[in-house]
Design a protein around this nucleic acid. Sequence first.
DNA 1: TGTACATCAGTGAACGCGCGTTCACTGATGTAC
DNA 2: TGTACATCAGTGAACGCGCGTTCACTGATGTAC
Lengths: 210, 210
Amino acid sequence: MRYPADHKTRVRERIVQAASQRFRRSGTADVAIADLMRDLRLTHGGFYRHFRGKQDLFDAAFLAACEESHRRLTAAAAAAPTGRALEAIIGAYLSPEHCDNAEHGCPIAALSSEIARHPRRTRVTLDRAVRQSAAAVAPFMPGETPAEREQTAMVLFAGMSGVLTLARAIADPALRRSILEAARTFYLGLAGVRTASTRSGSRRAASKGE
Amino acid sequence: MRYPADHKTRVRERIVQAASQRFRRSGTADVAIADLMRDLRLTHGGFYRHFRGKQDLFDAAFLAACEESHRRLTAAAAAAPTGRALEAIIGAYLSPEHCDNAEHGCPIAALSSEIARHPRRTRVTLDRAVRQSAAAVAPFMPGETPAEREQTAMVLFAGMSGVLTLARAIADPALRRSILEAARTFYLGLAGVRTASTRSGSRRAASKGE
DNA sequence: TGTACATCAGTGAACGCGCGTTCACTGATGTAC
DNA sequence: TGTACATCAGTGAACGCGCGTTCACTGATGTAC
């Protein structure tokens, strides 16, 4: 072989990583394999040595994005001071940075409405990701049984991803910021955190939360 | 003219209606103009007598879907018994029927992640729709000032649309149902409604979850 | 140790297809005179 | 009232482009003998 033993694996990994960002930024249809490969200093023909086709790449890229996202999630929770993991998770997810950088963020928020149109195989990956993330966050959630906490975690994630997706689609930057902020306040209230805006008058988000 | 005076308007309306459903069902990229026109017993050439191009059609279709969705929303609120408007809105939005019929449902949930990639013009329509729906629901929301209630309404909608979008993408029907139900319970709780699952200590929803 | 052959990541031309858009044309009706 | 011309929704062939996929080929290295 003219390449080191792990060469193929590494090239594949580079393709998956690049694709995973592109798909999140531009959506499935707007990612062209030839473009992708060219940016990696490769040609499109070689693509098929690594993947059976575009869908196969999407699956791998989506899975990689889910894993990356999950790692970031658990890292944020682990880095937070004791008892403030949920706060850290919510703050990171609904941050302007996350909103502005879909290509490095949650693949569910970035691709939400498209995923329903992908084949079952892809959606099974989603199922796993949802269960996994819910399980990871469940311990920090309000609720009496573990199952209840997990369900609330799923609702939290689904809700936050909806907020992020909507915020990204909004044309007016002021409205976008306002939605993001309102959602932060709302969900942090859920988590039992008093933010500046809850302190300054609105008690209901926190008390209404449960 | 060989057609009645309002003929053109009516044909355009039919195209917009059909497109609005198709876009919600299949996404922007998977709707082909020739297919659409054929199903309406027309040919694709005539399309350009009504629209400047596909994007122009999408804009009209998206606007129509937003209006339809808003009408349904206010109708549900108006039809509900006094004091239960919010409950009715949430129940309808998170219903299995809505989940199963994207083509007749909320265009934000159906197209969420795609809209961010549409031109500004389209996204301004979204802004208007979001403000309008939030304003319509605000009166039923908890909160002290109108602005506060409107923001909470936006968070509610964004959250529910995220739930719906995610539920539609989930492969496992049991997980899908469980997310939808958990979200119903959660948001109805917000609205101050005790559902069967909250009353019965969420034993039912919880046991179903797994 | 040398020779012939197999392997395989990568190349780039070519193929095929779908689809958005254009365009010359049709034919029924309205309008000018 | 009749004639010539304009209008315009709709038709369907054709165009052009992007893009996913295929395929014959390259060339470096490994392997068999």
